[in-house]
Design a protein around this nucleic acid. Structure first.
Length: 562
DNA sequence: GGATGGGGCGCG
DNA sequence: AAAGCGCGCCCCATCC
């Protein structure tokens, strides 16, 4: 991706008075080189375009979400950036810079209060206004100082390479997130509407239940002999269930499935239909799909572990039921790729567990582990391993732990150590250097207990934190792998586009990406996504003998993948 | 009337 | 099939 010796030049972007934009070239140490330029907002995009084409700098800005959506709207795509806020959030807690004296000098903010939230944040009509009337951020001097502090903290770290990779990946992720929001997932509203009609009945006026849902409610009222029951009210529903002799403690689907009463099946169907209507029904379609695209907003760094969150439209919970509406345009394909059993593989690599890496050498890691020590029982192997990663102590998973520990002592020791550290209030850290935030006030308060009863409670709180830190190292490192994967893929897709073809990332979900591409380059994209996975594995773990296989499908609609 | 918390369920 | 991680978002019930 590097494009020559200018690759390490930084280009600062900061707000200037009167709605202008300040541009300042910085050397590779982050120090100003030459004089700053102040340009009117209306000239910024054109200037940025030429700087990007000539120098390919690393753009430095307080927040990618402040600037990049507007650049994209003006037709400017950039290759690389350094997002000061995302980087500060990582460095603020990272154990890899502990003792460096680094403290963020810019507001970290909550990832949830972005200036660009809401769909109105997408301009396009008034080019001149693109870079004006924005929320003022830190000024150029403050940004330069913060960049210097960050670069200093990284270069002084015993883990400087890993940290630098993490900051680069996170910043590249921010670029990809803005680009994906611009592109959106191609969404066929007619297909979606048709499946809603089939499942729920025609769209009703107002807030009435659709006919098939109402019919299901009526059936339920009959079977439970509760003529006025509103099945949407858990309290009413629970009382009605009890009256009918169904002694359940909750209205959860998996609890209800234990009972054989004739009302159970219709109730589960009702819940499924009601959920579809509420979460992905016609109002979802109206709110989140426009011009044939579903445009969610990704929140990079929105999850403590480093995973992305999303805002609006439940982008990361698109149910299987409606995925048939995600369709490639005519002459195009969706290239859907997901990393197979990413978290267990990451654990094997993290722990340097050769035995587990060996079991992971095939396509199906769980089958490999089952063959190695669970009598070929794949389901058992999976439960045991997921239990180790999530911290299960009871049930089948808990019982299988000793067996797993005998097979893979190094991998199990790693997650056990993370759990013990967390219980004691210590921080744990991912492979590239994202550390847990300090213990919660709740945990701290639990340390000051006296009575036996309070101690019991305190132990429970400690165990809660242990499960969190246990999972953090694995989930967080998996998120790093995925972000590196996507960042590298992004560069490869750009090269495919430069040959004159359409190929863009349109969706990202923890360990899965979707590319929308012209049919003629779909196979090139499939190859690119594989190559990017190899690169990600090497970037994080060098030549550790762990494979990260993908399943890749070239399809017309999302539901046809895997 | 709006804010908040819990139950529930979708995704990984 | 089920009890253990991370989320977003729906509805309802309750509080202010």
């Amino acid at each position: 991706m590097r494009t020559g010796k200018n690759g390490d030049v930084y280009q600062l972007v900061a707000p200037a008075p009167d709605g202008g934009v300040l541009l300042q070239r910085l050397d590779r140490g982050g120090a100003p080189a030459g004089t700053a330029q102040i340009v009117p907002g209306s000239h910024f995009a054109a200037l940025a375009q030429s700087v990007e084409a000539e120098e390919r700098p690393r753009w430095v800005w307080q927040r990618t979400t402040d600037w990049y959506p507007r650049l994209l709207a003006a037709g400017v795509e950039v290759q690389r950036c350094h997002d000061l806020t995302l980087s500060a959030a990582i460095l603020a807690h990272s154990a890899f810079v502990a003792g460096s004296g680094y403290t963020p000098s810019i507001p970290l903010g909550s990832p949830l209060d972005e200036p660009d939230s809401g769909r109105s944040g997408w301009p396009g009509q008034h080019q001149d206004a693109l870079f004006e009337a924005r929320t003022p951020g830190v000024d150029a001097d403050e940004a330069v100082a913060e960049l210097g502090a960050q670069l200093g903290a990284v270069s002084g770290s015993p883990r400087r390479q890993r940290l630098a990779l993490l900051l680069a990946a996170e910043s590249a992720g921010a670029l990809a997130a803005a680009e994906m929001r611009r592109s959106g997932v191609p969404w066929d509203a007619e297909v979606h509407d048709a499946l809603l009609v089939e499942r729920l009945g025609p769209r009703p006026r107002g807030t009435a239940r659709p006919a098939l849902l109402e019919a299901k409610a009526a059936e339920l009222r009959g079977l439970l002999a509760s003529p006025h029951l509103n099945p949407d009210s858990p309290q009413e529903l629970l009382r009605a269930l009890h009256r009918a002799g169904i002694e359940t403690n909750s209205t959860r689907a998996w609890e209800l499935r234990k009972f054989t009463h004739p009302a159970v099946a219709p109730l589960l169907e009702y819940k499924k239909m009601a959920r579809l209507l509420a979460a992905n029904g016609w109002s979802w379609l109206e709110t989140w799909v426009s011009e044939g695209r579903f445009r969610p907003e990704y929140v990079v760094g929105g999850v403590v572990t480093g995973r992305w969150a999303s805002r609006g439209g439940g982008a990361m919970q698109i149910p299987a039921e409606v995925r048939s509406a995600a369709r490639a345009l005519p002459g195009h394909r969706l290239v859907v790729a997901d990393a197979s059993q990413l978290e267990p593989r990451v654990l094997a690599a993290l722990a340097g567990d050769e035995a587990m890496a060996g079991a992971a050498r095939g396509r199906d890691l769980y089958a490999g582990i089952a063959a190695a020590g669970f009598g070929g029982d794949r389901a058992q192997a999976k439960v045991a391993l997921l239990g180790a990663i999530y911290g299960a102590t009871t049930g089948e998973s808990g019982r299988l732990m000793p067996q797993l520990a005998r097979l893979y002592p190094q991998a199990v020791a790693l997650v056990e150590q993370a759990a013990r550290d967390g219980e004691r209030g210590l921080a744990v850290t991912t492979h590239l250097g994202r550390s847990t935030p300090p213990p919660s006030p709740r945990w701290l308060a639990s340390q000051r207990t006296t009575s036996a009863q309070e101690q019991h409670r305190a132990d429970a709180i400690a165990r809660d934190r242990g499960r969190f830190t246990r999972n953090f190292v694995v989930q967080g490192t998996a998120a790093e792998w995925a972000e590196c994967w996507m960042a590298d893929l992004r560069g490869r897709l750009r090269r495919i586009r430069s040959r004159g073809h359409r190929a863009e990332l349109v969706y990202f979900l923890h360990d899965e990406v979707v590319i929308h591409a012209e049919e003629s380059v779909a196979e090139d994209c499939a190859a690119a996504v594989q190559d990017a996975a190899q690169t990600a594995g090497r970037l994080l773990f060098h030549h550790a003998p762990v494979e990260f296989p993908l399943s890749v499908a070239v399809v017309e609609s999302y539901d046809h993948a895997k």
